[in-house]
Design a protein around this nucleic acid. Structure first.
Length: 489
RNA sequence: GGCGACGUGGCCGAGCGGUUAGGCACGGGUCUGCAAAACCCUCUACGGGAGUUCGAAUCUCCCCGUCGCCUCCA
């Protein structure tokens, strides 16, 4: 079945085919590691996790590269602000790399909980300085950049003579000019829309490297060009990221690739795919608005907008119930709804495993299955695919009650489809991790029951409870006035 | 100001000319020791206006409103 994906570059859905089958090169802009992972990170990661999983399911040999940006990402107006990681390090009086490592670890922890698969390669910008410098040198040699006071800028005016600038975001340089604010401190640049490939570092700057232009550090956009091309070649198949990266980040990447490699670069990637943003009460979630929610806050229920904790799969389902190119408006009500929907889905999945086959089939599993894959093939419409599962739940319950029947091969196909699509492709896990608190409550309750049984000298029941608990990995120890328990293998 | 999205029932959210999308919530009922689950029923929308069409949430135009990008952000 052919997979169609929406390509930001062409603004339409296109049939996806790899450049060099069966290999697929997928590059996604990962986090700049200077803060806690939030709902936006979760949405991007889950979106491309599903794409990665689906491409793999379809039989492609996917190399999935997702970077860690740990240098060069400046705050505030272009080329004037302070490096985000550096600022955090300065505030906390630690090494920048400590900041990077800490937030990388937190990112991994959050994404692991959401069952987001690790990419094949996760390169850090600071580990690829030579590749970035090499690219900049080549861009300079080809005449598309200039050096000023130890900094290097891409010369958009020169670039435009040979390549169109703004094709991804649909902007023209004239429009950019009209929209450019009067900014101070851009004196180094020939034109305000030029962007930095390399920045000179003051001696006190904490992160700096030797370069042909003196001590400095790379610009924000060059690391993604360098690392994606280094690991995936040129052009590679898919470049992804959040919608907010379209301009200037991805536009700059395309320019860098062309400036460095010429027309061969072919826009660096053949498909540019962008997930839409998460909004809170209709507004973009962002630090400056103070309305962002971290993934951890969802799991612990500690955000002021939340009244309780939610398991990771509730969030994963919420995200998958919207199409990735639509904005997703977050609210606790919506999250709670997704959590309940998840529990219902899980329950139905369990029931499905208990169904026994019949001597005829009352409905076509194949037709249903084709609809599911048609939805996935239609630009990864996970919402539509999930709806097909939900609307089948009634039939599953009837199958189990033996009011409906399926031949053995149809039943197997149905069960396999649930497993393949929900678990393998959509990455939902069943069952959810029961919280330790709830687990404790259940064990305590059983112990209480057993205590009652012992008081009534119902030792048969008491022993049964102890044996069953033991089988479930809970070891009981009776003392005169209390019963202690611990986990056992 | 430029570019681009979007406005669907209480909430979230599919939909791309002709079926009830789906989830959650709400109300009534069956069942049940109580409850839950399950099942049945109720509600059943498409910002406003005009147009195209046998037929429009879906196409065209106008208006209103919301949001994103244009400066860092997934």
């Amino acid at each position: 079945m052919p997979l169609y994906l929406y390509n930001t570059l062409t603004r339409q859905k296109e049939l996806f085919t790899p450049y060099k089958p069966p290999y697929v090169g997928l590059y996604v802009c990962g986090p700049t590691v200077y803060g806690d992972p939030h709902l936006g990170h979760a949405r991007a990661a889950i979106t491309f996790d599903v794409l990665f999983r689906y491409l793999t399911y379809l039989g492609y040999k996917v190399r999935y590269v997702r970077n860690i940006t740990d240098v060069g990402h400046l705050e505030g107006d272009a080329d004037e602000g302070e490096d985000k990681i550096l600022k955090k390090a300065r505030l906390e009086k630690v090494e920048p790399i400590e900041i990077a490592h800490r937030y990388t670890a937190l990112y991994h922890k959050a994404m692991d909980a959401l069952n987001v698969l690790r990419p094949s390669i996760e390169p850090a910008a600071t580990a690829h300085i030579p590749q970035q410098i090499a690219m900049i040198e080549r861009i300079l040699a080809r005449g598309y950049a200039y050096v000023v006071n130890g900094s290097v800028y891409l010369d958009i005016e020169r670039y435009r003579q040979d390549f169109p600038y703004g094709i991804l975001s649909g902007r023209s340089v004239e429009e950019l000019l009209a929209g450019t604010r009067e900014l101070e401190g851009q004196g180094e640049k020939k034109n305000p829309w030029d962007f930095a490939l390399w920045k000179r570092a003051e001696p006190t700057h904490l992160m700096q490297w030797d370069s042909p232009w003196g001590r400095g550090f790379p610009g924000w956009h060059i690391e993604c060009s360098a690392m994606s091309i280094h690991y995936l070649g040129l052009p590679f198949d898919i470049h992804g990221g959040g919608l907010d990266l379209v301009f200037p980040h991805h536009e700059a990447e395309i320019a860098q690739a062309h400036a460095c490699f010429g027309p061969e670069a072919q826009h660096q990637a053949r498909f540019w795919i962008h997930n839409n943003l998460v909004t809170i009460e209709g507004q973009k979630m962002s630090k400056s608005l103070g309305n962002f929610i971290t993934v951890e806050e969802i799991f612990t229920g500690t955000h002021p907008k939340l009244t309780r904790a939610y398991p990771p799969m509730a969030l994963r389902l919420l995200i998958l119930q919207a199409h990735y190119r639509s904005t997703l408006d977050f609210s606790e009500e919506a999250l709670l709804g997704a959590y309940r929907a998840y529990l219902r889905l899980m329950s139905a999945y369990q029931r499905l495993k208990e169904v026994s086959p019949g001597s005829h089939s009352d409905f076509s599993v194949q037709a249903w299955r084709e609809k599911v894959f048609a939805a996935l093939d239609d630009d990864l419409n996970t919402a539509a695919a999930l709806a097909l599962f939900f609307s089948q739940i009634e039939d599953i319950l009837r199958l189990r009650r033996r009011e409906l029947f399926l031949l053995p091969e149809d039943l197997t196909l149905l069960q396999n489809t649930w497993q393949e699509v929900l678990e393998k492709i959509l990455g939902l896990t069943f069952p959810p991790q029961v919280s330790w608190v709830n687990w404790q409550k259940v064990v305590e309750l059983l112990i209480q029951l057993r205590r009652q049984a012992r008081l009534e000298k119902n030792y048969g029941l008491a022993d049964l409870l102890r044996e069953e608990l033991s089988g479930a990995g809970v070891r009981l120890m009776d003392f005169p006035d209390e019963t202690l328990w611990e986990l056992s293998a």
